[in-house]
Design a binder for these strands. Structure first.
Lengths: 333, 333
DNA sequence: CTGTTAGCGCATTCAC
DNA sequence: GTGAATGCGCTAACAG
């Protein structure tokens, strides 16, 4: 006997399964006496109705899924935390899965959630038109994209105004004093492209001779790339300002530079983007642009739940407002 | 029409649902010609069989759940990352849920996973004999406890040898130079009790006059408590060594002390416990005891999966070996 | 108030 | 090779 079922409870209570079912879902329709009896049996066996059966029988599921790229990147943790707060408050259940930056894992995760007929899905997609999103569109399951915008008129999303964030950083960087500017775009993710664009559009590229250096997604990547950068760009001798398009990577860079004896912000000023929690507590508190990640999560979750409960197809496209956070990693000397 | 079903595919293909079912689960039992046909229809509609129905019909579920206390604490992230690596490799799917330190939410999460008939569950419980564990025992679902040991002969767990970790820290602290020792136990969680006990058993409590100060679970808690501690223990004038039983809290303490102008490790040496990822990259790299969290996760996941796939009830009780990590936060001056 | 019946979508015997 | 029948555990009409 694997799991005890509603029939077991019914027999033991000497009633029909309908009655047991009622006791669980609409207790007031049952005579107090029998209700108490049934409840005692349920309790005795710690009976928990199967969500599989309930779902099949037509009860709406009460769980929502969230697919992230990577657990260690605190960006997603903060997001999950925000989402969790509203999901839970509204009596739903949040399940998180990670795709480790593999588009095919991302797709697998989404498939898995669709397969289990999740009530709704939140996805921070690798790209606005990746396979996972395509699949989602055909799935009939409500979903909201996070950290990604799309022109598709049927898709809701919540993201930060990354272009504006890039602009904010550019305006700030202009006030700093340095001999060379290095931009580390980190990846070709849409959000990154936006923020780099916003940055470049508002800085005098010719005069500042920004240098582009690319491709790094994790803390480790930043750590490793820092060494070669130090040599390539003579960071030890040339006063440099570095804009890394992602805090997590930026922190990797900072840690490595410090290990190499390069001082921050004196020799190299480093700025990031995201304002994840650890940015304020890392080796050198990081100047960055806040995306209000926690709020992004909350808002997306609200939209999704409204969609589910009110069964409305209204699409919402929301951009959170970026805020510049100046900390020690770029303080003027 | 909510979701398309196996019947839809069957009709459109002009075959019976049995055939469609075979195409999916045992393709070689179907004539190549019809198989291709059916597959094309499946593809055309992006048909994904319902895990609810499959589960009900007796197919074993391929998902495993993990319940953590809190997302922002990197300890659980590292754990999840380790778990994820083996779960995925073995074609299972990992779903993470958080309980935000509420025992009743912990219970709810476990209920939710049992309800959905998850194949297996990993739980980092608030206590070895909390309600969630009790429920799990009656659920017939294989599970492994993480970060917790129990005498119960039927329960498998993977935890760190926290007592030994406390001893390691004590031996190290003895070599340091300070006027007072402050112990911040953080919580009454079993792991914490163990490590504090290991610490106290191996240090001369009388001579060192350790001071006990309690109850803090998060970064914020550490941050807030640091201020009052500074006054209570005259941290500005008395050379102090502080053992905080949890890295995340320790980092909060460090950040606040620095803000107050107290130098680390010169005026106050701080040691933590856990060796979460950010410990090496925080304001002052933290001396701590490594629990090899990532491995804990991997091992627990292996045990659980073996249990599920081989259907064996063998219980495994595993303690990982702690390792002292000396970093700048306590470097001798 | 309570029991009976009929699916929900699928896998799995069995026949053919 | 393939189709028809049965049941998984539960909810939702429908009768009593």
């Amino acid at each position: 006997m694997k799991h005890i079922t509603i029939d077991d409870i019914a027999k033991e209570s000497g009633v029909s399964k309908s009655t047991v079912s009622r006791v669980i879902s609409r207790p007031n329709l049952v005579k107090e006496e029998t209700r108490e009896l049934v409840l005692s049996i349920i309790d005795k066996y710690s009976y928990i109705p199967s969500a599989l059966a309930q779902g099949l029988a037509g009860l709406p599921m009460k769980n929502i899924g969230f697919v992230v790229d990577e657990f260690p990147n605190n960006f997603y943790i903060d997001l999950a935390d925000g989402i969790d707060s509203v999901i839970t408050a509204r009596k739903y259940t949040l399940q998180v899965m990670s795709s480790l930056w593999h588009p095919d894992r991302e797709l697998q995760n989404i498939r898995s959630m669709i397969k289990s007929r999740t009530a709704g899905i939140l996805l921070s997609p690798s790209s606005p038109d990746c396979e996972a999103v395509e699949l989602l569109k055909q799935s009939n399951i409500p979903f909201v994209l996070l950290n990604c915008r799309t022109e598709d008129p049927e898709i809701s999303y919540v993201s930060c105004d990354n272009y504006e964030g890039g602009r904010l950083m550019a305006e700030y960087v202009k006030t700093l004093d340095f001999q060379q500017l290095v931009i580390l775009p980190v990846s070709d993710h849409q959000t990154v492209v936006d923020r780099i664009e916003g940055f470049e559009d508002h800085i005098d590229m010719k005069a500042l001779r920004p240098i582009l250096y690319s491709n790094a997604k994790t803390y480790q990547d930043g750590y490793h790339i820092a060494q070669s950068m130090a040599e390539t760009y003579s960071l030890k001798t040339k006063k440099t300002c570095m804009f890394v398009a992602n805090d997590y990577v930026a922190i990797g860079v900072i840690v490595k530079l410090l290990e190499m004896g390069i001082t921050i912000p004196d020799q190299v000023a480093v700025a990031g983007f995201d304002d994840i929690r650890i940015s304020a507590m890392c080796r050198v508190p990081l100047t960055t642009v806040s995306q209000s990640v926690y709020d992004m999560g909350r808002i997306a979750a609200e939209i999704l739940l409204d969609n589910i409960t009110q069964n409305k197809t209204e699409v919402v496209k929301h951009l959170t407002e970026p805020r510049l956070m100046v900390r020690e990693s770029t303080k003027k000397t």
